[in-house]
Simulated scan of single mutants.
Amino acid sequence: MHDPGVCAGVDEVGRGALFGPVLAAAVVLSRQASTSLEAEGLTDSKALTARRRRLLVPRITAVAEAWAIGQASARQIDREGIRAATEAAMRRALQRLAFTPSLVLVDGVLPLRGWEGEQRTIVRGDRDCAAIAAASVLAKEARDGLIQRLGQRHPGYGLERHMGYGTALHCQALLERGATDLHRQSFLVRLFSGSSTTAGNP
């Protein structure tokens, strides 16, 4: 994996969902911590089972030199667009670290706009960089937990099953019940192209 050095890995989750915020995590790992977590199976959160992710969370937070979570709401996504909102969530996570990293490693090919420090993009970084992989796990577990709690407040959408993504179950519930104030209206307009999905809270 990428040599972590003195740097923070940052990754997001929830970018393509129809409901709820986009979350990002930032994680700073020592070389020793990176090696230890890799030996325990740390990789991209999407390649891990839910049980493995849950087991890794306390290990990551225990050995990380610093970690933090940031988010951007559905309203901010509608107002600014998903890329800008995602970048805001990433910056918030980085700004909440106990110290400012000298280098930020960003998953993907797009740079993190608005971050004044040194940064580097890494394609497939959530598989090839331990700090980014750790960030992906923390962000995924934090968002899943949040969506499950919100699902109790907004029953009938199956949020606890699809985490707000546009599954057939979710789309059918939107058609039948309308959207909540936590749905991304800009996404729904594109998805349904004129269907009535914004009838208010169920």
Rank of each mutant, 00 (worst) to 15 (best):
R79I: 02
L105I: 10
L175D: 00
T35Y: 04
T49M: 07
L103N: 00
V10P: 07
V104Y: 09
A88I: 08
A93F: 03
A89V: 05
D78P: 12
D44P: 07
A88M: 11
R91I: 12
V104Q: 07
R184A: 03
I132D: 05
L97M: 04
A50F: 07
A64E: 05
R51Q: 08
L37V: 03
L159M: 04
G14N: 03
A24G: 13
A98F: 05
L188Y: 12
H2Q: 06
S193A: 15
L97H: 03
S196D: 14
G151S: 02
T180Y: 11
A62Q: 10
A24T: 10
R52H: 12
R31E: 13
I82W: 05
V63C: 15
G108V: 05
R59N: 01
L150F: 11
V189M: 12
A68C: 10
D107F: 06
R143A: 02
A84T: 12
F192T: 12
R92M: 06
V137G: 07
L56E: 03
A199L: 15
M90Y: 01
D181V: 13
R120M: 13
T100N: 01
R96Q: 13
A84V: 14
L182A: 12
V106N: 09
F99C: 09
F19M: 07
M90R: 00
L23A: 10
Q71N: 03
S36C: 10
V28W: 09
Q152P: 09
G151L: 06
P202D: 00
G200F: 03
R153Y: 11
V123Y: 02
D78T: 05
K46N: 02
T167N: 06
A74R: 00
G158C: 09
R83Q: 08
E65N: 09
L23I: 11
V27L: 14
S30V: 12
I82F: 10
R177T: 02
R92F: 10
A74P: 14
P58S: 00
T167V: 07
R113A: 14
A134T: 08
H2G: 04
S195N: 10
